[in-house]
Design a protein around this nucleic acid. Structure first.
Lengths: 166, 166
DNA sequence: ATTTATGCAAATCCTTTGCAAATCT
DNA sequence: AGATTTGCAAAGGATTTGCATAAAT
């Protein structure tokens, strides 16, 4: 039942860690215990997080695998360079989210619960392109965030975050 | 030739300083020399700026009108509260721009010359509303920034800014 | 054996704060 | 006079850096 003839090689997405090691090799950087631990932790769930969140998570998981704060910062930047993570500023906080193997999307940001909701819009891509064309601007990316109150918070009576820093 | 009968009072936009003094009064805050100097300086040109830029400008203009760094920070926040300025984070920098009496717009950001180009799109408003409706999200605002290379920089050969922080 | 990465503590950058003195109303 | 605001210097928070030691090739 096993097929032994070879199929045309399909571009299958590598697991994040492997993808990262590929990147490291290409830059003559080393695959260290810390880097591996960080990548595993980062891709173990799909939340948005900042350096501190990650540090906390690392401390909670297998306690023997310590990683210093500086290494977390350094590796997070490497992961962005490698295209595994996206970095953005939200309300003054630097937050990261998965980029590698993750579909393009934008965010709704609730000013009460501070939750980020993802959405995708094809029309947005169109606008982006049109605006670029109009201004003879070579578009390489964008960031779009809609602020307001999410459905759950519309009933709850919680204070709205000042929100000047989106 | 002078008409002495009174016309129905039209809502004319007040100059920024007057608008600000109105705000100050409503909050029992005082119209101080520093606050006046800052507002005048801020609205003397339409560039985007950060606290440091403003401090420099203040130092260059009439040298007798000194304003301390803390006061600049404090007043900038007041101006945001008063609705005269918008605050946003760009590439890790906190930048301000005129809001009062200024039409709603979004930005193109050139990663080479770091210039901000303003544009407006009605379609964007539509998308915003549609997305909000879909997610039962009460939209109060948004931030949209398109990144890339402006027309002038497309010919020049300058390095592209890393740009992870938009 | 070499070279790169880590961890620590110190340094930096930007912004905020406490408080006495100065300035408004 | 009485209250608010200012300027200063010190405190904060987040991130980066220099450097000796540890770990990877």
């Amino acid at each position: 039942m096993t097929q032994t003839y070879s199929l045309p090689q399909v571009q299958v997405a590598l697991p994040p860690l492997e993808r990262f090691e590929e990147y490291l090799q290409s830059r003559k950087m080393r695959s260290t215990r810390q880097r591996r631990v960080i990548v595993e932790e980062v891709f173990s769930n799909h939340d948005h997080f900042d350096a501190d969140d990650l540090l906390d998570q690392l401390r909670q998981s297998k306690s023997d695998e310590k990683v210093s704060r500086s290494t977390v910062y350094r590796t997070l930047d490497d992961l962005v360079d490698a295209g595994l993570l996206r970095k953005m500023t939200l309300n003054g906080r630097t937050v990261f989210e998965h980029d590698y193997g993750y579909p393009q999307h934008d965010h709704l940001y609730c000013q009460k619960c501070e939750q980020l909701i993802e959405f995708h819009s094809n029309e947005l891509e169109a606008i982006r392109a049109a605006v670029g064309r109009e201004h003879n601007f070579r578009v390489t990316g964008h960031r779009f965030i809609i602020t307001g109150i999410c459905s759950e918070c519309q009933v709850a009576r919680r204070p709205v975050r000042p929100l000047d820093l989106i």
